[in-house]
Nucleic acid binder design. Structure first.
Length: 225
DNA sequence: TTCCTGTGAG
DNA sequence: CTCACTGGAA
């Protein structure tokens, strides 16, 4: 008999957020490869800056595995400059593209999803320099449509305030907490993470705006910070 | 823990 | 001016 997992609060938070904030239509990228590039560029970076970098790549006709591998480091760094950390992210984008190329999916990165089961594919992504857990899960979920829940700083902050996690758990532990309680539905994971980001940006900020938060009545820490 | 970096809100 | 931003590596 498996340990009973109380899923109701996690589903209730999703439903409340969806009703209050509406569908978020993530990821804001036009192709799976664009989503993968965005996942790297947005690391610790505001999305508005990532949009500029991606616009530069498009304008230079450089938004493909082959084009990025062909560019010199200096050229690529100049294009993604608005996204910050441009030297680090130049190496990371090249590592990602090199991986896709070696995997034989350079011309059609969505075919990466056919390379075995989710845990094995996730492990292969984690071996790529610059792809950590959140980036790997973002690629799996938003580029490939696979049911891998994305945990980020907002998730940790929001669910700690809600009292549903402690807040100091590892990434893997929090991810499992969600995945053990939600059906493995990519559309649900997609919407849920997007809603979490929206709440974290607009309401459950470092200094929270509890008065207008759609979750106030669910939150034991409302008004305490 | 520290470093990596541009951008915009406050 | 300071802070936060859909982190990850060394």
């Amino acid at each position: 008999m498996p340990k009973h997992l109380e899923a109701a609060p996690w589903l209730a938070v999703h439903d409340r957020l969806l009703a209050a904030l509406g569908a978020q239509h993530w990821w804001p990228g036009e192709t799976p490869f664009e989503v993968m590039v965005g996942a790297v560029l947005t690391q610790n970076t505001a999305w508005s800056n990532v949009e500029r970098a991606i616009a530069n790549l498009k304008a230079a006709d450089a938004l493909s595995v082959a084009a990025i591998l062909r560019l010199g480091d200096g050229e690529l760094a100049a294009l993604i400059r608005p996204a910050g950390y441009f030297n680090v992210k130049t190496r990371r984008l090249k590592a990602l593209c090199g991986f896709l190329e070696r995997a034989g999916v350079g011309g059609d990165p969505v075919r990466l999803a056919r390379g075995g089961r989710l845990p094995a594919l996730r492990q292969r992504l984690l071996e790529v320099n610059g792809v950590g857990e959140e980036t790997a899960d973002s690629i799996l979920l938003y580029a490939l449509g696979l049911p891998s829940f994305v945990v980020d700083a907002y998730t940790r902050r929001i669910f700690a305030r809600l009292g549903l996690i402690g807040g100091a758990e590892t990434y893997a532990h929090i991810r499992r907490t969600f995945m053990d309680r939600l059906p493995p539905d990519p559309a649900l994971y997609n919407e849920y993470h997007a809603l979490i980001v929206a709440l974290g940006k607009d309401f459950c900020r470092p200094k929270p705006r509890c008065a207008s938060c759609p979750l106030v009545d669910l939150c034991p820490r409302r008004g305490l910070e």
